[in-house]
Write a protein that binds this DNA or RNA. Structure first.
Lengths: 267, 267
DNA sequence: CAGAATGATTGAAAGTGATCGAAAATGATT
DNA sequence: AATCATTTTCGATCACTTTCAATCATTCTG
């Protein structure tokens, strides 16, 4: 990981949310706190980011009306470290040049950072993901057509005959509201619709869920377990859930989330 | 492996990835680090790559942050006042609730500002337009699907069966490279393709061109004059061009870009 | 054989990580 | 509300690693 590379990561990270902590950037880049502080210092000199206690913030004032979708923003503050670790593991599954599909969501959005150095073909129905990758990476971006739903932050077409059908990928990555023995669950009918369109357009279906999702239940079942190729989650996954996945013949990847200070959750 | 060959490899390598390390280039070329450093040095002298600690990076600005598309940005600085006046006139043609199509371009992009306080249905193939309207307006945004072309800043699908065919609007707004007796002209084949897909999806075709475009000629003719419903331009339009439009039965709107104008007072 | 290019070596320079005391923020007590 | 103690973060320093530049020996080419 080189200096310039870290700088790019830092700059792109502060644009996703109002502030990033030094610790966040450590896990994101894999370097020590001292180095991150030095980086923030130099970027502060270059007026690229603003240095604040505990981390850095975007140079643009809090007129952060952007990202069009409050629920997205509030959700994003939860379990950031775990989500980032999961997203990193997801990107590590891919090689340069791969074609992937990323379904919109707060967990999958975290994939944009590790994807910044890649050159892949990314198809997504998420406007923020497309926007970020367009501005901060050299990946080829393909977007599904349709109306932009502000609350869910996805693009969805009411028709079946859109480009989605013409795009096929190695892997599809998606989040979910819950994951239980019944299958993959989602709360929003709109999201169900969006995900239904994408499922089946890839060889493998990779589900990104932080461990809290194994306790969640929702009314809408998106698909059954056997439809899932791999689940990526964090260390907090209950043994019971792991056994359930094992029984359903689903690969399980547990992402190690580096320095996390949430020890109370496990016990 | 000859010097020139290595140089070619190095140059192409830095364009793929943000940074390449000396070690990367060693394995890529099979020569020693010393040689790679010498190569980077000479290429740095020739302004072909930028030398950084640990390797090299592309000569293009340190961070390709921003509107993701250089040509877009440089174009945007020209004739701003005229373009804004034209764009304002274009938006004034529309009523609340109208459905419109906006084809991507620097002139049509200016429509986003007057559109900010509207509530309309906007279909566009331009990522920047969608982004801006999404963040700064309450219009309903619909986007065409496909790959995002960074240079042209448009989204284009190679397939004919995308949502574009399912969207029909009152008016379609588009810019052009040139406008002459032969018809509407464009320079970029990709833009032609994008525009071809949208033309025919609206009752009226409104062309936004600043007056300099009447002098421009391009190799590719998009459509003939009689296909155009209305042309909006600025005061600089030559009499000859006005007569030409008159003869072709095209409505002509001349937007007043000066400080004195009748419509400005009302708003 | 001459000239140039390449590879290896080595001391210098720069970057990185860890440690420790100082400064700041947080919260608890009076 | 003010003060004190605890925790967190910061800045500086030092040791260690990586990278650089200069030099010299070797190889390749004509």
């Amino acid at each position: 990981m080189h200096e310039k590379e870290r700088h790019r990561i830092i700059i792109s990270a502060v644009q996703d949310r109002p502030v990033v902590t030094v610790g966040d950037l450590c896990t994101l880049t894999g370097v020590s706190e001292a180095t991150i502080r030095r980086d923030i210092s130099t970027l502060h000199m270059k007026q690229k980011v603003r240095r604040i206690r505990g981390g850095a913030e975007a140079i643009t004032p809090p007129q952060f009306a952007g990202l069009a979708g409050r629920p997205f923003v509030v959700n994003e503050t939860m379990n950031i470290a775990a989500k980032q670790a999961i997203a990193r593991a997801a990107v590590e599954m891919c090689s340069e040049g791969d074609s992937i599909i990323i379904n919109g969501g707060t967990t999958t959005f975290q994939m944009v950072h590790p994807l910044a150095n890649r050159r892949m073909q990314v198809f997504t129905n998420s406007f923020p993901i497309a926007e970020h990758l367009l501005k901060h990476s050299k990946n080829t971006i393909m977007l599904s057509g349709g109306a932009i739903y502000r609350e869910q932050n996805i693009i969805l077409s009411p028709f079946d005959n859109d480009v989605t059908r013409n795009f096929y990928a190695n892997r599809m990555f998606m989040g979910a509201q819950g994951l239980g023995p019944i299958g993959l669950m989602e709360a929003d009918p709109l999201l169900i619709q969006a995900e239904q369109k994408l499922i089946g357009q890839a060889d493998e279906l990779i589900v990104l869920v932080d461990s809290s999702k194994f306790a969640q239940r929702s009314s809408l079942v998106l698909c059954q377990l056997d439809r899932i190729t791999t689940v990526i989650t964090d260390e907090g996954i209950p043994d019971k859930a792991a056994a359930m996945l094992e029984a359903a013949d689903v690969n399980l990847i547990v992402a190690q989330s580096g320095s996390v200070q949430e020890n109370e959750v496990a016990s």
